[in-house]
Design a protein around this nucleic acid. Structure first.
Lengths: 245, 245
DNA sequence: CACCTATACTCCTCTATAGGACTATAGGAG
DNA sequence: CTCCTATAGTCCTATAGAGGAGTATAGGTG
């Protein structure tokens, strides 16, 4: 096929409109992570563009970490891989000095009315029912992280039905497989506080000991908020790194 | 001038070698933040390259936040602006709800033998003398942040001589003006802990109250480590945001 | 004086083309 | 069977050029 025309505002540069068009295809689910997109030559032919213009469009999406180029193979929808990012920050070393894979234990999973800050983040009505899950992460059978997770309905209603043993330590693959929801990006907000009575007993520390609190809102490709999560972990195991310039 | 030849390994693509060449000029101090570099057309002429190749080289440096393009005006060495980044994280609001400019009070400034972690970061000998500075940041006359700062000799020897009143709240401009040292980028490492007796008294809080600890190593354009800094601030005023994908 | 216009310089968009480098596969040589 | 080679498809590098768009300035117009 040849001579197809780019949609969108024609006052915008062609490379932007092509990038928008590919981004939209992904947001609509026509292309999933891992899928190969059309080659640069095909896109150029299809939309009647010069190769350089196509490359410029793709460069934008590579920069946004939506696409990934592989020299000699093709261009692919990137697999977002940050579910375990909490363990970029928390390094738990076993007696042998090697990183340990943390276990997961679900403490509660039920419907509850969403509190205000959650409802706002997930764009649902305050007090509307949502799925609430309470999870404990353990390393060497010692608790290191507690999580409060909120998921909106009806998008995640299937998540209440599935067996607990089907839920591994990584939740985002489960969201994809069981509910068809793909997490594309997230925003994290980080602070610290004293553990307090509730969490000190769960984490088996003193109430005055500091914990890191990470709030995360996860979004789909179309920017719909999918999950609200608050994680608390031992501050002394926590180390975050950032490069700034 | 025309027909100049790119230096560096000629197995590398030309755009990379041009980027390297510009980066090196900046590292050597031939170009300073704010300076305008040669136009794309001039560079293309000078090195006998196609305009697209020059643009590709500049794009790399723009991506690295070393250069900045201004449509219609030119391309400039970017001003690194992150000295106040601590106050991206700590938001101190006055009674009127507006952001407050924090004051600075230097508690100590003297030569001391560098402890191991500092010496390692600054690539100097353990126990070698270095400048140590202890600084307090205040908002509304209330202490909110304590800083320990280490600077290597002989690079910063002028810093010991200058009057305290010449040192404003922002140190990096002082490093530039007084010592000719430009901070180009930094690495930050973040954790939290209980304040402890020493810092609780300085920050006027309880010893058990949590504080955020930010270690920062600042580097020049040529990747020489210029400053080691550890800042401690009230955790409850601290909020860090990150986008991940 | 205030305003407009022409000019020159900058980066930006887009076209068109040629060949190199990397990957994968099919088929033949040994 | 293993190894090599040819081939085709992919992204990557580089060339050359035309015109658009934003910025600044000099000089003319009213």
């Amino acid at each position: 096929m040849q001579g197809s025309v780019l949609s969108g505002d024609d006052r915008l540069p062609k490379y932007m409109r092509l990038a928008d068009s590919i981004r939209t295809e992904i947001a609509l689910g026509k292309r999933r992570p891992g899928d190969q997109i059309a080659s640069e030559a095909e896109l150029a032919m299809h939309y009647d563009l010069a190769p350089g213009t196509v490359r410029q469009a793709i460069a934008i999406l590579v920069d946004e970490r939506i696409l990934e180029r592989q020299h000699g193979k093709g261009t692919f929808v990137r697999h977002p891989r940050f579910d375990s990012s909490m363990f970029r920050f928390f390094r738990f070393l076993g007696a042998d000095g090697l990183d340990l894979e943390p276990e997961s234990r679900i403490l509660r999973r039920l419907l509850l009315p969403a509190p205000e800050h959650v409802a706002q983040a997930l764009s649902i009505d305050v007090g509307a029912d949502a799925i609430f899950m309470n999870r404990l992460r353990l390393v060497d059978s010692k608790p290191v992280l507690v999580e409060e997770i909120w998921l909106p309905l009806p998008r995640f209603s299937a998540f209440l039905e599935i067996e607990e043993r089907e839920i591994g330590p990584l939740l985002y693959p489960v969201y994809d497989r069981e509910c068809g929801q793909i997490v594309a990006r997230a925003e994290e907000y980080l602070t610290a506080e004293a553990a307090g009575v509730e969490f000190s007993s769960i984490l088996q520390i003193e109430p005055s000991e500091p914990v890191i609190v990470i709030d995360r809102i996860a979004y789909a490709y179309d920017d719909v908020a999918l999950e609200w999560r608050r994680s608390r972990g031992l501050a002394k195991e926590f180390n975050y790194h950032a490069s700034i310039r």
